[in-house]
């Protein structure tokens, strides 16, 4: 019997010099009360933070505040099992919900001085660095799709979108990038 566990096939997206697809990742949605959320971030070795719309990260892992009872936990693709077992141990007895969505979303990175302008083709948020500083993250919209937007650097954004919306979002971003560069 064939072992297909290496046959992971991400949704193909449009890329451009400023837009690249990020490698597969592990993703979990953690929902629960404040106690569980704090404990989880600690168990993953991440800095504690309750600030709305902010991400915390260390090497290879990140926790993104998506709502008062919701964090998106990102890690490398091979970290899914470890994340799950760490959290099961740390959260035992605390009400919470941990659901893996590693394959539900795709991620890509937009980079460069024009990155915010390109995103503003379809994203209605103020992406000025004063209004949307590094490590701000939020669910928002891009044209007719929902995305998770995380500013990972002064000129770098990570965009997460449901896998079936990825071609749509990246096609518009690629067009917008083309236009912004011309």
């Amino acid at each position: 019997m064939a072992d297909l566990s290496t046959a992971r096939q991400q949704q193909v997206v449009a890329t451009s010099p400023v837009l690249r697809q990020l490698p597969p990742a592990s993703r979990f949605v953690l929902r629960g009360g404040p106690q569980a959320l704090v404990a989880a971030v600690g168990a993953l070795g991440l800095p504690r933070s309750d600030s709305p719309c902010r991400a915390v990260r260390n090497d290879g892992r990140a926790a993104l505040w998506l709502g008062p009872d919701e964090r998106l936990l990102l890690g490398t693709a091979d970290a899914a099992g470890e994340t799950e077992s760490l959290l099961q141990r740390a959260l035992a007895g605390m009400p919470h919900s941990l659901v893996e969505i590693s394959h539900a979303q795709g991620a890509f990175e937009l980079r460069g001085a024009r990155a915010a302008t390109i995103l503003n083709t379809g994203c209605p948020l103020d992406l000025d660095s004063a209004a949307f500083p590094v490590d701000m993250c939020t669910r928002t919209v891009f044209a007719k799709a929902q995305i998770v937007l995380w500013r990972t650097g002064a000129e770098t954004f990570r965009v997460e979108t449901a896998r079936s919306f990825a071609p749509y979002v990246t096609k518009i971003l690629a067009l917008a990038a083309c236009e912004a560069m011309s």
Binding site: V29, D69, A162
Partner: peptide
């Protein structure tokens, strides 16, 4: 209620 919802439509 201690209950939470997560969409997994595209996970599977």
């Amino acid at each position: 209620l201690d209950v939470w919802l997560t969409s997994t439509t595209e996970q599977w």
